[in-house]
Amino acid sequence: MAVYKKVYRPYEGRLTGPLARLLVIPRYAFEDLHRSKFLNTFFIATLIYPLICALIIYVQHNASALQLLNVQNARGLISINVTFFLSLLGWQSVMALFMAAFVGPGQVSPDLANNGLSLYLARPFSRVEYVLGKMSILVVLMSLMTWIPGLLLFLLQGYLEGWSWMTDNARIASGIFFGSWVWILLLSLLALALSAWVKWKPAAGALMFVLFFVTSAFGATINAVERTHWGNLASISYLVGSIWVQLFEGANKTTNGAVFFRSPIGEEVPLWYCWAGLTAIVLACLYMLARKIRGAEVVR
């Protein structure tokens, strides 16, 4: 019907399924994000480090390139090993933190400020689907920055080095994948929970950094004052770093993490404490979201 015919008519066409509805939120969000020059530039910039890594891997396996660069024994300069991939994951995860701080606060708070939630939830669309929809925006962005380039580099190295290298180092691949997901889920939930509770977007973004860096400083202070290692439990970066090292290397620990995600050797706390700490943060975030994501506010 032409739009100039100003009459109301019922809709009798087909309806989409729940999955298609779930994808509506990220689709609209990506359209909006795509319009931001700053975010586009930042996202592209986050791929520079993986590109450099790819170049290093390529050069290491290319004799003519090495000859051209007049570099002898290049394998001794940079080893493609656990540390290499952990460093990649560490840097990319810091970039993911920045991305979450830029994008996350704009997800829930505008809907809350403008009473938009009642409109979402008055449709065949649940609170869980709303959170998943919003979370998927961050998950996709951060996946493109962490485990996807990580695994591509792993495959590149495996392709150039040979099948045996891949099988010998399969744990690195699983570490990249699961380690990234631990960080991505934690960051996404933190970003959404802060977005739900802090309506001013810059404040919510800043709080992400505060949680990450200040908790580390707080943990270090407790360690120094109390001469203990248990202060590390207050540090998100330590918790994540410990889990990464475990995921990458298992019990045979040769590194202490990478970048900001370090668990120094000799300062360990039992791993299950780390998992429990992260689980507590996740549960707190879920509780915060459950309190705020409602179709209607309860007037008490």
């Binding site: 403008n114 009473n115 009642s118 409109l119 065949p124």
Partner: peptide, 19 residues
């Protein structure tokens, strides 16, 4: 979910999606 599929809701307060 089924019930909400049948309903169109115009809330009392200002309600929209920013921007």
């Amino acid at each position: 979910r089924e019930v909400r599929g049948l309903i169109g809701y115009m809330p009392e307060n200002d309600a929209f999606i920013a921007g």
